[in-house]
Design a protein around this nucleic acid. Structure first.
Length: 755
DNA sequence: GACCTGCTGCGGATTG
């Protein structure tokens, strides 16, 4: 990305830096600036443009931003009081880490550094408010609280603002929290009547144009984009296959069958075998082991700890996930920073991002990773400068025999892992899903705006938040509908002169500290059968009565859905094998499913598979051929029919809703949708008739979905807007239509006798 | 059947 104007830029950029920071660089033993640091220096010092600095690994992004920012601030000290540089970070732990790193840099330009988040004491906060200055590191939620509680002071606190820095930009894009961040940055510029250059630090993203447009909606094309190069980093990769029933510990390994040992009563054979390999390979160095759920994290951390005990060696394996106490998590983070004692953290996505825990030697991934982007992010945590990044993927699959149904015989998790590695090597990552209107966050920002100013005119609210602002997808008619509805549910009231004020319900919401976060903490649904509570579960696939659901290892049919009380009434469904789920907590993208199909259709075996994984792949391709999935997408299963869409989860969910609207019941089963009580020929005819009618409107389809309230303030949306919002966020009708066309175009053959 | 993130102000008890 270096252009001719910057040739020889390392030395000329260095010369532009503040002398105290040049000494800081020498003190750190750096001989020169890295290319991205040099390249970033010019536009940041000029201060007339937004800048995005991205890299897959650490790569000195923080320094690339702050060496020029602090130079600019240091060489032209502010005459007015107030914060000069505002840094926004997604995690408290990241802010604490950056606070230490940036303090040593900022003292060279005599700039005070402050941090502000939920764990910072009230005393420190009042001190900052008394004399706002220098560099302030804050979370979006704490900035929100400043707007709500000290709205009138915001122009003074930030009156001297010269730069805004957003760290880990990729973690905000596409989410409610991201919409909140955009709105806060916009409201900040309105409050001080100035545009302030934004500098964003980000991981590698699938769509850089979208990232720039996220950073400043509407003007993204003007942002300068700098890629910190990490092409030099090699990747060492292995994918290991396991069978779920096997017990294959080497003789003499701890934990084989002895009473009270890990092998005796708990831990399936494949889990023991995987744990044994992790124990052998990782003990003695720092590594991160990603499992896809808290349950699996606990299982593996426990197995590994017991293996250490049985071998009479100190335990180096610790669990790390969001349900553990702050103390336990910080202990593991501390051990990771301490290079004198090796430690292995078994974790969910908690250690995927941000916190500079120091380099780890390798990454283990148990099961298919949730997304290609997450896999890349995890990989970026390993490999010291110049060393290869090491990734070991462990995948278990069931044994298959002649009576195994198609969805279980295709080795979906293994093939998905291979597909994701292929895409990683192609440098493809999931782009943000378009279309979300973020109406929940619009409600939050509207209430916050009213609190900030003590009341606001409807037209002003619209022009601040919608017209050129972050919620530009909302028409003025929709905004008016929203305001009227918020009035009827006591969230807002309108005074005689037309000013919008908080209503009784609005006051209660805004005055509680939980208001400041834009994202919802997943709500659990209560599952009830015959008046008895079976348990609770967070559910985010579309629910309609008649749908099948798996819970506690049994198959149930949904009778009624009570969205208000989050209760689902179930009745036991006829037996048979419960469908399988290979989901990993986030929606699988279309591109991944297309690549998955391509893996079945090619014949080469990737070199990074171990022999068991290679065998499993061969077997999966044989089964794919046996069911003739190359030419057809409908396969008979007794009275039911499997439908293979080879499309992403958004499309699969939309097809489920479309079939539901047509009176059919479709249940996810591995890579297939199982459509109840219909033959392939009948289903094909059904689909053909459906496809001959006009494509249904996504909003009308969303009216049939019973659990549309998914984001925090969705419950205050009128049905009309809730349907629009759900349709934009969760449905892809054109995509589903195309996928169904491919289904009917594929050969339909009745196969009596074949399952 | 599934990951993570964040949060104010005050009162009162305890300790040095």
């Amino acid at each position: 990305m270096t252009t001719s104007e910057h040739s020889g830029s390392e030395s000329s950029a260095f010369a532009l830096l503040y002398p105290g920071l040049q000494r800081w660089i020498w003190d750190h033993g750096w001989s020169e600036l890295r290319p991205a640091q040099a390249e970033a220096a010019f536009p940041i010092l000029a201060g007339d443009t937004d800048v995005i600095i991205s890299a897959a690994t650490a790569a000195g992004k923080t320094e690339a931003a702050f060496l020029p920012i602090l130079s600019a601030v240091g060489s032209q000290p502010s005459t007015a009081p107030g914060v000069e540089v505002l840094y926004l970070g997604p995690l408290k732990a990241l802010i604490n880490d950056q606070f230490e790193r940036l303090s040593t840099m900022a003292e060279r330009v005599e700039l005070p550094v402050h941090r502000w988040h939920g764990d910072v004491s009230g005393g420190h906060k009042s001190e900052i408010l008394r004399k706002p200055s220098g560099l302030l590191l804050i979370t979006p939620e704490s900035l929100e609280a400043l707007f709500v509680l000290r709205g009138s002071q915001v122009p003074t606190i930030f009156g001297a603002l010269r730069y805004v820095v957003v760290d880990e930009l990729h973690s905000f894009i596409g989410s409610e929290r991201g919409a909140q961040l955009q709105s806060l940055l916009h409201r900040l510029e309105l409050a001080i009547h100035r545009r302030v250059p934004r500098v964003a630090l980000s991981a590698t993203l699938g769509d850089m144009g979208a990232a720039a447009d996220f950073l400043r909606p509407g003007s993204g094309t003007r942002a300068r984009h700098i890629v910190a190069d990490d092409e030099g980093q090699a990747l060492k990769l292995q994918l290991r296959g396991y069978l779920k029933t096997e017990l294959e510990l080497a003789p003499g390994q701890p934990g084989v069958g002895a009473p009270g040992s890990p092998g005796s009563d708990d831990g399936a054979g494949d889990e023991l075998a995987i744990a044994a390999d992790l124990f052998d390979v990782l003990r003695g160095s720092d590594n991160l082991i990603f499992a896809n759920s808290r349950r699996l994290v606990e299982i593996y951390a426990d197995l590994l700890r017991r293996m250490a005990e049985e071998s009479g060696v100190p335990n180096e394996f610790f669990a790390h996930h969001g349900s553990l106490s702050k103390d336990l998590r910080e202990y593991v983070e501390q051990r990771l920073k301490d290079r004198t004692q090796p430690v292995n953290a078994v974790c969910t996505s908690t250690l995927e991002m941000g916190i500079d825990i120091g380099d780890v030697r390798s990454i283990a991934q148990i099961g298919a990773p949730p997304t290609v982007a997450a896999m890349r992010q995890r990989l970026g945590r390993s490999g010291r400068r110049g060393d290869a990044a090491v990734l070991r993927v462990y995948v278990s699959e069931d044994e298959v025999n002649s009576s195994t149904p198609p969805p279980d015989s295709l080795r979906a998790e293994l093939i998905q892992s291979i597909a994701m590695v292929n895409l990683l090597l192609e440098r493809w990552y999931e782009p943000p899903e378009p279309g979300d209107l973020h109406l929940s966050t619009l409600v939050q920002q509207l209430l916050s705006l009213i609190a900030q100013h003590g009341g606001v005119m409807a037209a002003d609210a619209h022009s601040v938040l919608c017209a050129p602002g972050p919620f530009s997808g909302i028409s003025s008619a929709q905004f008016a509908t929203l305001l009227r509805h918020l009035g009827t549910v006591d969230v807002l009231v309108q005074s005689v002169d037309g000013t919008l004020l908080l209503g009784r319900v609005g006051e209660r919401i805004v005055n509680h500290y939980s208001f400041y976060a834009a994202f919802a903490t997943p709500e659990e649904w209560r599952l009830v059968s015959a008046g008895q509570t079976l348990g609770t579960l967070p559910i985010d696939f579309p629910l309609t009565p008649g749908l099948f659901l798996i819970f506690a290892g049994r198959r149930w049919r949904v009778l009624t859905v009570d969205a208000g009380h989050k209760v689902i009434d179930l009745t036991p469904a006829p037996g048979g094998r419960p469908p399988r789920f290979i989901g990993t907590g986030s929606l699988v993208h279309d591109r991944v499913r297309e690549e998955l199909l391509a893996v079945y259709q090619t014949s080469s075996t990737p070199a990074y598979l171990d022999s068991r994984a290679a065998d499993l792949l061969t077997e999966a391709r044989q089964n794919f051929a046996r069911y003739r999935l190359n030419e057809r997408r409908l396969v008979q299963d007794g009275e039911d029919t499997y439908m293979f869409l080879w499309a992403g989860d958004r499309i699969v969910n939309t097809v489920t809703a479309l079939l539901g609207a047509a009176g059919l019941t479709a249940t996810r089963d591995g890579l297939a949708l199982s459509v109840a009580k219909i033959s392939p020929v009948e289903l094909s005819a059904h689909l053909m008739a459906m496809l001959a009618t006009p494509m249904p409107d996504a909003v009308e389809l969303s009216a049939l979905v019973r659990n549309k309230v998914t984001e925090k303030y969705d419950r205050f949306l009128p049905d009309e807007l809730l349907e629009v919002s759900y349709a934009a966020r969760s449905l892809d009708v054109p995509g589903a239509w195309k996928a169904l066309k491919r289904v009917v175009e594929s050969t339909v053959v009745a196969d009596p006798g074949e399952r």
